[in-house]
Design a protein around this nucleic acid. Structure first.
Length: 422
RNA sequence: GGAGGAGUGGCCGAGUGGUCUAUGGCACUUGUCUUGAAAACAAGCGUGGGGCAACCUACCGUGAGUUCGAAUCUCACCUCCUCCGCCA
């Protein structure tokens, strides 16, 4: 959510930002509603003042005089009812519109319609060359007993999977290395709920727009697609002290996504599944653009470093305007090389939001002058499993169908080669 | 699932229809005193909206309602706690 004052004073900027994001929004309508809101509010306040003044007199009056005052106030009250009704109507539409106003993308965000227009900003690592035809992760993992997709579908339906044997060892090793990598940087590990109430989804900006991507329970809660939701909710409706900032969480949770708009995409394997696990970086910091930008680079770099530990070729892209979410100011995606598809696939997404989320979640802090400020928020994938296995397995495959374990993971897996028995 | 209790400003907590635009305490800020600090004393100190300002107004879990007037009464919902039952 943006500040209505800011929208009033920077209407053109807000409109241009929405256009860059390809998100339709009627700012002129919002501004005219806001005029009505202010006028009606003023009228109501004046009436209220009158009522409050009279109230004191009524309390002290007696008999006939009191009856006269009461009669007069009944008239005032009738006049207010109408204005109140109008005010409620205006506020309802005002609030709905406010939720549709996107945050303004940064100057450095490139123009573009979709992920096809994202700009590469970094390339790292050497793509492996194979003197045999490399297999994809589905075939490799199935052969090595690391995953079972057929039975996954039998039990869990479309996009279902089991991880098994070395697949579990490898997953667990990634988690442990991640925990070590990020806690060494001073981030606080957090295991967050996936079953989350509607409020927090509104606050993080996933609702009301993203309803169809979420699973919902019969009790009205939603299953989160990322630990960001619960981790951001952690400080909801709280006032933090300057000294508490920055808050840096490394949050773990199961993640659930309906993938409603992606029915034909990535139907095989571990790239796009309904149910997975993710370590997520979630940060609250002081309300400073400079700090947000620095932390954004830092969070993204943390994940790049982790990928470098695994020694997997990747590139980093800056997402174009059309590929940004409602609240995001700027976003980097890290994409890993997938030999089986001969392309890069997204593994991480790092964004900052300024105070867009914290305004909705009411997360504030007292600054050095004692003034209340909305904090800034950021989040970035640390590492998702099992998606990360795709790149590990395909890049580290050997001619005999076995898989070398990346050196950094060997201590956690407990062996150097997966699938020796084959 | 059953029964009961509770939600008040950063925290604790008083307040059951009329100067409550909320008592008091803690914390915090400033000042006096002190070599310095602590203590003591004094003053200030909630968050929004409108206004240049004085000031006006809203907010006591959320939403509706009753009333000239609601933190206070009624209804619904949310959250938390206690006891019983079930249970990894």
């Amino acid at each position: 959510m943006l500040d209505i004052h800011f929208i009033r004073e920077n209407a053109d900027l807000v409109k241009a930002g929405a256009e860059k994001k390809r998100i339709p929004v009627d700012i002129d309508r919002l501004l005219s509603l806001d005029d009505s809101r202010k006028t009606l509010r003023g009228e109501l306040d004046d009436r209220r003042a009158e009522q409050n003044r009279a109230s004191g007199n009524i309390a002290n009056a007696h008999g006939e005089e009191k009856e006269k005052l009461l009669e007069a106030m009944r008239h005032v009250k009738q006049g207010m009812a109408d204005t109140e009704e109008k005010y409620k109507e205006v506020m309802k539409e005002w609030q709905e519109l406010m939720l549709t106003v996107p945050n303004i993308p940064d100057m450095s965000v490139p123009e573009g319609e979709s992920d096809a227009d994202n700009t590469e900003v970094k390339v790292w690592g050497e793509k492996p060359t194979f003197d045999f035809t490399p297999m994809n992760h589905v075939d490799l993992m199935t052969k090595l007993g690391m995953a079972d997709f057929e039975r996954g579908a039998k039990v869990a339906g479309f996009r279902g999977y089991f991880l098994k044997g070395d697949g579990v060892l490898l997953t667990n090793a990634v988690w442990q290395l991640a925990l070590k990598h990020w806690t060494n940087k001073g981030m606080v590990p957090l295991m967050a709920p996936s079953l989350v109430r509607r409020e927090t989804f509104m606050g993080t900006g996933y609702l009301p727009q993203g309803e169809e991507d979420l699973y919902k329970t019969q009790d009205g809660e939603y299953l989160a697609g990322t630990a960001e939701v619960a981790a951001m909710g952690y400080h909801m409706d709280e006032t933090l002290e300057m000294g508490d900032l920055p808050v840096k969480f490394l949050a773990f949770s199961p993640c659930f996504r309906r993938e409603a708009g992606a029915h034909g995409k990535d139907v095989r394997g571990l790239i796009r599944v309904h149910e997975f696990f993710k370590w997520e970086q979630v940060v609250l910091c002081e309300a400073s653009h400079t700090t947000s930008v620095a932390l954004h680079e830092e969070l993204n770099r943390n994940t790049e470093e982790f990928i470098e530990l695994l020694n997997i070729p990747y590139h980093t892209v800056v997402n174009c305007g059309g590929d940004l979410g409602l609240g995001q100011v700027k976003k980097y995606d890290i994409e890993l090389w997938v030999p089986g598809e001969n392309t890069y696939r997204e593994i991480s997404s790092a964004s900052y939001f300024h105070d867009f989320q914290t305004r909705r979640l009411n997360i504030r802090y007292r600054d050095a002058e004692g003034k209340m400020q909305f904090a800034h928020s950021l989040n970035s994938t640390a590492i998702p499993t099992p998606r990360i296995l795709v790149s590990i397995i395909e890049n580290y495959q050997q001619q005999d169908g076995t898989i070398r374990v990346p050196a950094a993971l060997v201590p956690y897996v407990g062996k150097e080669i997966l699938g020796h028995s084959v």
